[in-house]
Design a protein around this nucleic acid. Structure first.
Lengths: 206, 206
DNA sequence: TTTTATTGATTGAACGTTCAATAAAAAAAT
DNA sequence: ATTTTTTTATTGAACGTTCAATCAATAAAA
């Protein structure tokens, strides 16, 4: 049913179908035919709109990362309170947004993350996103603690968020978003509390 | 050069070659020919010793998980101090063991982890390992805090460990083991400190 | 009638597995 | 000790399958 202006519609259809396919059988067994069947179109259309399978995969990852950034940005812009605590809380909430954490997006995210180790283009996208998260966190922590502590706090919280995602993506029942948010916020509380009343030196690991 | 008793030697050679190949080009582009070339043998031998490519991949994941458990067990058995703190510290140290964190093992671990989402056999191995880590942590935390807190502490620390691994596997320079251990130990300190002097109720997330 | 979107059979490359042939060591026989 | 036989390990070409990409044909809107 060729109508004019199909391009944006088809592109979105195919990106959604890609996530559905990866969620269903994993990236390794996601073929162009399976994606096309999910979208209700023929296989050839993928090369037509995305230049090939790789182009579609790249566009899909790009969308996931964009959505994630968007979920964070929305919450940060809606803050009434400008405190570091509020900003970091919004970052946590955004990272555990329903639309990101539930359904196909989560498994697709992990699949791409693993795949990005050896695909330069995906690695680039991953890196840009990572750096933004880290530098945002670092900037906010920096407002209440010295540089070295802020760096560690940012790295620790980033690792915690990713770790919760990772474990959630693997759990058959999916991520328990409420629990994940609770653990992340509790960790954040502890980071602030620890700065408030620095303990004695127990950091002899290195 | 057929000698008798080649089986254990070849099996180990092929498992090592598999990790090297995955480290080099990723799981998706790891073919039996590439593995065989790494090991200096022919492709057919893989089916002979492992029944096929899948058998070799399963054996490789099994070895990685075994090595990881071993690294933890060695440290726990060597403890002079039987405190919860010492046990959990040993678990952290074992999880960031040099042989695990450096080189091909780390990337192979992440590749398998992602792959285990859709391969029942790998998922089973993953689950067994996960449960052991969680129940060990939980049991130790349980010695110094109520059940609910112990559960949360165990989940938080497990997420932190996995998150640090995940980020380390993706960083081109590899995981900074010293920093990872520092962050994990600091988090552990905070968990204990937080229990020692429970803050006011700031847990209104759920 | 022209333009645009879509199809799906075809093509060529890549992969895992198989298996008859081979080569080397070990065992037996001379 | 040497030769012959048996056993064991290994090879690599051939086979069948699967997949992504292509493109001439088609069908629907403009």
């Amino acid at each position: 049913m060729p109508k004019v202006g199909m391009e944006p519609i088809r592109r979105q259809q195919l990106i959604n179908a890609t996530m559905a396919a990866i969620d269903e059988v994993g990236l390794a067994e996601t073929t162009v035919m399976r994606i096309a069947r999910h979208a209700g179109v023929s296989a050839g259309i993928i090369s037509h709109y995305f230049g090939g399978k790789d182009g579609l995969l790249e566009a899909t990852m790009r969308q996931i990362l964009t959505d994630l950034s968007g979920a964070v940005a929305v919450r940060r812009n809606a803050l009434e309170d400008d405190s570091p605590r509020a900003h970091i809380g919004a970052i946590i909430e955004g990272n555990f947004d329903r639309t990101q954490v539930t359904g196909p997006a989560a498994k697709t995210w992990l699949a791409f993350w693993a795949s990005s180790m050896h695909k330069p283009m995906l690695q680039r996208l991953q890196n840009v996103n990572d750096r933004r998260l880290y530098s945002n966190l670092c900037h906010q922590f920096r407002r209440v603690m010295p540089r070295a502590e802020a760096r560690n706090a940012a790295r620790g919280l980033a690792a915690m968020i990713d770790g919760l995602w990772l474990r959630g993506a693997l759990t058959p029942e999916g991520l328990d978003a409420a629990e994940a948010r609770f653990l992340a916020h509790t960790y954040l509380d502890q980071l602030f509390a620890h700065y408030g009343c620095p303990k004695t030196e127990s950091n002899t690991y290195s």
